[in-house]
Amino acid sequence: MTTERLPKPLAVPAPRALLELLKPITWFAPMWAFACGVVSSGVAVGGRWPVVLAGILLAGPLVCATSQAANDWFDRHVDAINEPHRPIPSGRIPGRWGLAVAVAWTLLSLAVASLLGPWVFGAAVFGLALAWIYSAPPLRLKRNGWWGNAACGLCYEGLPWFTGAAVMGAALPDGRVLLLAALYSLGAHGIMTLNDFKSIEGDRRTGIRSLPVQLGPDRAARLACLVMAAPQVAAVAALAAWGAPWHAALVAALLAGQGTLMRRFLADPHGRAAWYNGTGTLLFVLGMLTAALALRGGVA
Score class of each variant (00 low, 15 high):
residue 18 L to V: 15
residue 187 G to Q: 01
residue 234 A to I: 04
residue 83 E to R: 15
residue 70 A to V: 11
residue 68 Q to A: 11
residue 105 W to F: 10
residue 119 W to E: 10
residue 64 C to N: 12
residue 225 C to W: 05
residue 135 S to A: 15
residue 119 W to P: 04
residue 94 P to I: 13
residue 64 C to F: 04
residue 202 G to S: 09
residue 137 P to Q: 03
residue 30 P to G: 02
residue 31 M to Y: 02
residue 297 G to N: 06
residue 203 D to C: 07
residue 77 H to C: 10
residue 10 L to G: 03
residue 17 A to H: 08
residue 16 R to T: 15
residue 245 P to D: 05
residue 76 R to N: 14
residue 119 W to L: 02
residue 289 L to I: 05
residue 259 G to L: 14
residue 182 A to S: 12
residue 97 W to C: 04
residue 290 T to R: 04
residue 32 W to G: 01
residue 138 P to F: 13
residue 206 T to C: 12
residue 134 Y to I: 13
residue 241 A to H: 03
residue 202 G to R: 05
residue 287 G to Q: 13
residue 32 W to F: 06
residue 283 L to W: 07
residue 131 A to V: 06
residue 102 A to T: 09
residue 67 S to L: 05
residue 176 R to F: 07
residue 13 P to N: 14
residue 162 F to S: 00
residue 180 L to Y: 09
residue 297 G to M: 07
residue 4 E to F: 04
residue 267 A to G: 08
residue 32 W to Q: 03
residue 179 L to D: 00
residue 160 P to G: 10
residue 166 A to F: 04
residue 114 S to K: 05
residue 255 L to G: 01
residue 240 A to T: 06
residue 245 P to I: 10
residue 85 H to A: 15
residue 129 A to Q: 04
residue 88 I to Q: 02
residue 141 L to N: 07
residue 11 A to N: 04
residue 291 A to N: 02
residue 292 A to H: 02
residue 50 P to E: 10
residue 229 A to W: 02
residue 43 V to P: 05
residue 127 G to A: 14
residue 298 G to V: 08
residue 129 A to N: 09
residue 50 P to C: 13
residue 49 W to S: 03
residue 50 P to W: 06
residue 217 P to A: 11
residue 163 T to H: 03
residue 252 A to L: 12
residue 300 A to P: 09
residue 258 Q to W: 00
residue 38 V to K: 07
residue 163 T to K: 04
residue 220 A to E: 11
residue 33 A to I: 06
residue 110 L to S: 03
residue 167 V to P: 06
residue 76 R to Y: 02
residue 50 P to A: 05
residue 214 Q to D: 12
residue 205 R to W: 07
residue 229 A to G: 14
residue 144 N to C: 13
residue 249 A to W: 11
residue 211 L to M: 14
residue 170 A to I: 08
residue 299 V to G: 06
residue 64 C to Q: 12
residue 177 V to G: 07
residue 80 A to H: 03
residue 160 P to I: 01
residue 8 K to F: 06
residue 208 I to Y: 14
residue 97 W to V: 03
residue 115 L to K: 07
residue 73 W to L: 04
residue 69 A to S: 13
residue 33 A to R: 02
residue 100 A to K: 12
residue 187 G to D: 01
residue 165 A to T: 01
residue 240 A to W: 02
residue 273 A to Y: 09
residue 29 A to I: 11
residue 297 G to W: 04
residue 144 N to P: 14
